[in-house]
Design a binder for these strands. Structure first.
Length: 421
RNA sequence: GCGGAAUUGGUGAAGUGGUUAACACGCCGGAUUGUGGCUCCGGUAUGCAUGAGUUCGAUCCUCAUAUUUCGCCCCA
């Protein structure tokens, strides 16, 4: 038997219905925010991701799906959505569009070569939004409010919005230096991994699980102490707009969001659901004012977030949230003889082309089993055909809730269903 | 890249180095001659992830592989 690849999953059945529901909800929300849909390719030039992320980290060296195509081009399956969107923004010169800022959303699969665990797949699905060409602090708050609204509409209660700022370049560099100077004398008191991080990625040390209770880290300087006036003012405005939108948040200086291209606002929304697992960040993002320029575009402020749908689905299941999914049909047609079947085909075809959701028997079941099938499909009405009635152009329709049944002329069937569904 | 746990029908699973691999749900059929859901009866794994090995004999023991799962690292 050929089985699915490690870290991939099949979505079908009731989960498939939930999936469609979520995707529709996402589309509706993004439309209400006036974000336009963008679909970029699943594979891009390897260099796009390498330049965006920086060559040093593990990410590039071992966590992307890289391969050479037949033309010997170096190709990478996209590990995230932002780089492709930014590439498209530059390539299609969207910075020249009449309507600014450019507000985009995407929804698609991403690929990361990692060991799977709870909430971590090799093929994952993320939806995300990006706003390019706007530095208004309100936009930062707006971008945060999108996943917050999504979670609220789904009914997820146990979530926490963490925000932080990395400040502008000056603030960030000053802080980085101060942090290294503070930690250096204590280096031997930190865990092995953190010792390695000190030069490579010192901000990451703040988020270490092993050293979380270490007094040294608790007393470490935070970025908030090193913000210059303009960065501080900017952050205050973001918070102000979040408050205007009644969004509960917590300022958490530990949120650093890994990579270099972030500045100013960064945020993560985590699931605080019981037994959720180690990978509990449902959505995260931040401002990346340098990235467009890094990818050879004009200097353009930008901010965005990405939300992992697989994790979101996990949270929905852990919380036993009932989504308002579509899981029933209007009518199921039952018959036994061949002449009855011919009429069933005509009727079912006619009903479907008039928007009635219906199905018919196709397995040669006994009538008894056909009733069971209709129940499994949650059919609101049952249509029973028999040859004797068909001679008079009549069928039996049974309301599967009240169990009342009546004979009805086939010509009146559509009207009857439209009124009673 | 590193580590722990797991893998038995459609599903949940019990079980044992030795005849026919429990039980339950589901499904199919019948009792009910074309009106179900209750009840009763019958049918539903030549098979215990795959491949080697130990053994007279392996689903059970050993090893390898795959997959699943949970962590670590990393987190775009």
């Amino acid at each position: 038997m050929i089985t699915k690849q490690k870290g991939t999953t099949d979505i079908y059945g009731i989960t498939g219905k939930k999936w469609l529901y979520l995707n529709n909800l996402i589309e509706d929300i993004c439309r209400s925010y006036n974000y336009d849909y963008i679909r970029t390719p699943i594979f891009e030039a390897t260099e796009l991701f390498h330049r965006g992320v920086g060559e040093t980290t593990d990410i590039v060296t071992k966590e992307t799906y890289d391969f050479k195509d037949r033309g010997d081009r170096s190709i990478t399956l996209r590990p995230e959505g932002t780089a492709g969107v930014v590439r498209s923004y530059i390539e299609n010169k969207m910075y020249g569009d009449a309507t600014q800022p450019v507000k985009l959303f995407y929804n698609g699969t991403m690929y990361r070569y990692e060991r799977p665990q709870s909430g971590r797949m090799r093929e994952l699905t993320q939806f995300g939004c990006e706003v390019l060409g706007c530095d208004d602090p309100y936009i930062d708050a707006e971008v945060i409010s999108i996943p917050v609204l999504l979670f609220k509409m789904i009914g997820l209660r146990n979530i926490k919005v963490n925000i932080n700022t990395l400040g502008d370049e000056e603030s960030r560099n000053n802080y980085r230096e101060a942090l290294i100077n503070y930690l250096k004398p204590h280096i031997n008191e930190l865990c092995e991994d953190c010792q390695k991080r000190l030069e490579k990625n010192p901000l990451r040390i703040l988020d270490c699980k092993i050293d979380a209770e270490n007094e040294i880290l608790k007393n470490a300087p935070t970025i908030l102490d090193y913000l210059n006036d303009s960065s501080k003012e900017r952050f205050d405005k973001v918070k102000h707009y979040l408050e205007l939108m009644d969004i509960d948040y917590e300022v958490n200086p530990k949120i650093v969001r890994g990579l270099d291209y972030y500045n100013h606002t960064v945020f993560e929304i985590e699931a605080t659901v019981k037994d959720f697992g180690a990978q509990n960040v449902l959505a995260g993002g931040g401002r990346y004012n340098n990235m467009v320029e890094m990818l050879d575009g004009p200097s353009t402020p930008a901010i965005g977030f990405a939300c992992g749908l697989d994790r979101l689905m996990l949270a929905i299941e852990k919380e036993d949230i009932e989504l308002n999914i579509f899981n029933q049909i209007d009518c199921f047609l039952m018959y036994v003889s061949d002449t009855e079947k011919d009429m069933a085909v005509k009727i079912v075809n006619d009903l479907r082309s008039n928007g009635i959701i219906c199905d018919m028997e196709n397995m040669g079941r006994s009538l008894k089993a056909q009733f069971k099938q209709a129940d499994r499909l949650n059919s609101k009405f049952l249509l029973l055909l028999n040859d004797k009635d068909l001679e008079n152009n009549v069928v039996t329709i049974k309301d599967n809730v009240t169990k009342e049944e009546q004979k009805i002329n086939i010509d009146e069937l559509l009207d009857y269903l439209n009124v009673n569904i």
